[in-house]
Nucleic acid binder design. Structure first.
Lengths: 334, 334
DNA sequence: ACCGACTGTCGAAGCGCTTCGACTGAGGCG
DNA sequence: CGCCTCAGTCGAAGCGCTTCGACAGTCGGT
């Protein structure tokens, strides 16, 4: 390879047409006769032409790149985050866009830089907290953005997420249908609640509201990610609530530990205690026994986020909030 | 904000200098008097100027973006991968570069496209297999690249990785020092070996070689990531090798299950069985008991990869292979 | 046969930046 | 005192692409 890259004018010369004609063939923005189109595309193939991204961005004022803002915070389950990220990349490619990865350590400055330098056309922001420092910036930026997750005040923003309140509710309803009267929620590590991460709190609210509606009794507890702490928490819980027969676990890193601890204390699942998890399917399936679970539709959330962003880039109006409905899959733990 | 972005010519006018002077102030490529420099920088600040990335890339033939090629394959522990990725992003920013995220689903075409369109100046390729389809492409590409991991034939490539053979050896040496005579390695899921992933095999080779040298007896087994399978494997192992007293675990997803299974079968760690893990510190610390471990220096690997890539971008020669030395941290499991 | 309305194509004007060569003074040296 | 060097600055020529306006044909309607 190497040597200087093929330019559009070489393609034009080779095909015997004007540079602009090549451009129109490639973009489809003007009608081109079938014959010319074919000749141009042949030349493109023969010469191995690839449009120069910088030149294209400069002339069209569109970089065809979106930013994926992905802080990696403590207590957030990385594989789930990466499912979102992967699906954002895949979806973006379907719109002929690439993805620039922005992490936390530059903070808001990174967003500002990428946007102001026209490096990216728009932003997908993940792992949004209720009171997120990046949110005011997003509102003032010229570049459109879509958030995965909801801040406390989502006005003026486009947000997508799983309806976690409904997910929490669904778990309780399922346990109630199975006849369980006393239930508990083991949620995210306490640091996640303290930080004000929306999805953790909303699940808890959905859980609590449905417990009340259905006339059950229930507690919601944070849950750390280390075996000894999980084990101690379960011991305390079993001790304090001898009637407990249903457990909702919303913590990917801890599900394994929870099952281990129940086994340790001689509780059989689902015989003595029924367990519902909110987690990706692969984790639920890999557990022993395979867990009834509400799946986090990461692929769909990422896809929707990109779709909304593309709509905004086209200048179309989009709904402010999109909540995806959770679905519960029954397996062997309830 | 919005409105049209501030351009370099507006800065030049505001500061009362030529456009080229502003450019030289910003790039430092020619001497500029202190007075002029100050005036220009003031104007930059006052007007809120950010250079347009596309224009810069076009004129300078440098995008200041590198690609991070990150396939997400089954059996690879995602959090570890993300540690690499994060450190690549952070390191790249220190060289004033951004990172474009390329995933697997486009395959080699994605690399070719990003390189040929001058979207990126160079590539960092992660999760390299022994016989990796991307490797021939990398060799023929004009853009420099650095691999994290070693393919079977690394000639003509720049590779960085932890010295996994040494890591495997280190674990065995440690167990031997503690007096263990019969040891086992629980490695990656079998799919990872079958795929020919270098790090898994090299750990196994280091393990096996050192077992032989030290006159121990040992087996190396793949290890799946699901509790029941781990539990069954451990049961079989304990049964087949009653004298077994040392275990090396090189599988982040399974360490927890391994400990659970040992507990299940009444083996105490480290009393009955000593366990050394090869995994990130946080996983080792979170286990019960906290595990003696060889840490995967993800941060340093990412940093070195970026440093090497930057050297290559500058046209400097760099070593073909860089192996980082592992370090063992003793905790409570041996 | 003539007129508009299209279709298909071209040329040229940028997009905002970097970089090359040239120019101007000021300073050092014989 | 004249000449050379060098620091500091400028103007202009691209970088490779998109897009606008213009224009030559073609075609159906009357």
């Amino acid at each position: 390879m190497s040597g200087r890259a093929v330019t559009i004018s070489e393609v034009a010369r080779h095909a015997g047409v004007a540079v602009s004609t090549v451009s129109y063939v490639l973009s489809g923005k003007r009608a081109i006769s079938a014959d010319t189109r074919r000749r141009v595309l042949d030349s493109v193939r023969v010469l191995g032409y690839h449009p120069n991204a910088g030149a294209r961005a400069l002339a069209s004022r569109r970089a065809n790149v979106i930013a994926l803002v992905l802080p990696l915070r403590a207590g957030v389950h990385v594989p789930v985050l990466m499912q979102f990220a992967t699906s954002v990349v895949t979806a973006a490619r379907r719109y002929d866009h690439d993805v620039l990865l922005l992490t936390a350590d530059e903070g808001s400055d990174g967003l500002r830089r990428a946007a102001a330098s026209a490096l990216v056309d728009g932003l997908v922001v993940m792992d949004v907290e209720l009171h997120d420092g990046r949110v005011p910036l997003l509102r003032e930026l010229a570049e459109p953005s879509v958030l995965i997750g909801f801040p406390a005040d989502p006005s003026g923003l486009t947000c997508v997420d799983l309806d976690f309140a409904r997910a929490g509710a669904l778990c309780v309803e399922h346990l109630a249908e199975r006849g369980h009267r006393e239930v508990a929620l083991l949620g995210a590590p306490s640091v996640v609640y303290e930080r004000g991460t929306g999805f953790a709190r909303r699940t808890r609210e959905g859980f609590a509201a449905t417990v009340a509606e259905a006339g059950l009794t229930g507690v919601a507890l944070p849950c750390e990610e280390n075996f000894d702490q999980v084990s101690a928490a379960i011991a305390a819980l079993l001790d304090a609530r001898p009637g407990l027969s249903g457990l909702v676990v919303h913590n990917e890193a801890a599900v394994g530990h929870v099952l281990g601890a129940l086994r340790q204390y001689g509780r059989r699942v689902p015989g003595d205690i029924a367990v519902v998890a909110i987690c990706p399917d692969d984790i639920a399936e890999r557990a022993s026994p395979p867990l009834t679970s509400v799946l986090i539709p990461a692929e769909e959330v990422g896809r929707q986020a990109v779709r909304l962003l593309m709509e905004k880039l086209e200048g179309r109006a989009v709904p402010d909030g999109t909540l995806l409905q959770p679905r519960l899959t029954v397996r062997d733990s309830t």
